[in-house]
């Protein structure tokens, strides 16, 4: 459902995204991002690692409860067990405690808004199953489903989100020309589509992508310990 996908991916979705830089603030602080070229490298790396992992988790969350059982197409409401198990898969793929915290905070905020925008039993069940807040990709996938999107859409929105958040943060922090930065994003569009397709290739949760990005983990940890910061993460 294309219109729902646009709403979900829009940075104006009131779900707290504007407070998160996805490591970009710390990367700017230590001089790893100074302009559009190194921003592009940062985004490409982020998309290929945590972006792909998040997109695959979101696709899986979107597919939770779809067509359960052998009779094909029988719709089963996801139970708390399924949501907790998938959330644990996200936890296992998020090494840094700082990133875990940021992911759960964003997931909790998105779920709270999502439940009011697209009321659905599945989102209510997710909120009950993970009261401290599910990981962000899980919330995004579940909200995508509640909005009427397919798993591929959920993956695409999540991949998009993984690079647009840091890109916007870099614009604000460095005063980069926003048109330059949008050209960088446009250049990554084919990669976004590849990541979204790859995200839907796996059905067994334990086989979902698990690419690590140690540099992003370190940036996240260091960011939390930095005294002056404008972003939550």
């Amino acid at each position: 459902m294309d219109a729902a996908l646009l709403l979900l991916a829009d940075s104006r979705l009131p779900a707290g995204g504007h407070g998160h830089s996805g490591g970009a603030e710390e990367a700017v602080r230590i001089g790893a991002i100074t302009g559009p070229e190194d921003l592009a490298r940062f985004l490409r790396g982020r998309l290929a690692t945590t972006g792909l992992v998040a997109a695959a988790l979101a696709a899986a969350a979107c597919a939770v409860g779809e067509a359960a059982g052998d009779d094909g197409g029988a719709y089963a409401e996801p139970g708390a067990g399924a949501w907790r198990a998938l959330d644990a898969e996200a936890d296992a793929r998020t090494a840094s405690p700082a990133q875990r915290g940021a992911s759960r905070t964003q997931g909790r905020l998105l779920l709270r808004s999502g439940r009011r925008i697209w009321p659905s039993p599945a989102l209510d069940a997710l909120a009950r199953a993970v009261p401290e807040g599910p990981h962000h990709p899980i919330a995004l996938g579940a909200a995508a489903r509640a909005a009427g999107c397919a798993p591929h859409d959920a993956a695409l929105a999540t991949a998009y989100n993984a690079i647009t958040g840091p890109a916007t943060a870099a614009v604000r922090l460095l005063g980069l020309d926003p048109v330059d930065v949008h050209r960088v994003l446009a250049g990554l569009a084919p990669d976004l589509e590849r990541v979204a397709r790859a995200s839907c290739a796996t059905t067994a949760w334990e086989d979902l992508p698990a690419h690590a990005a140690p540099a992003l983990d370190l940036l996240a940890e260091q960011h939390l310990r930095t005294e002056v910061r404008l972003f939550v993460s």
Binding site: P14, A15, G17, R108
Partner: peptide
């Protein structure tokens, strides 16, 4: 515009 973090 996006009050989610404050509501939280």
């Amino acid at each position: 515009d996006d009050i989610a973090a404050n509501i939280d």
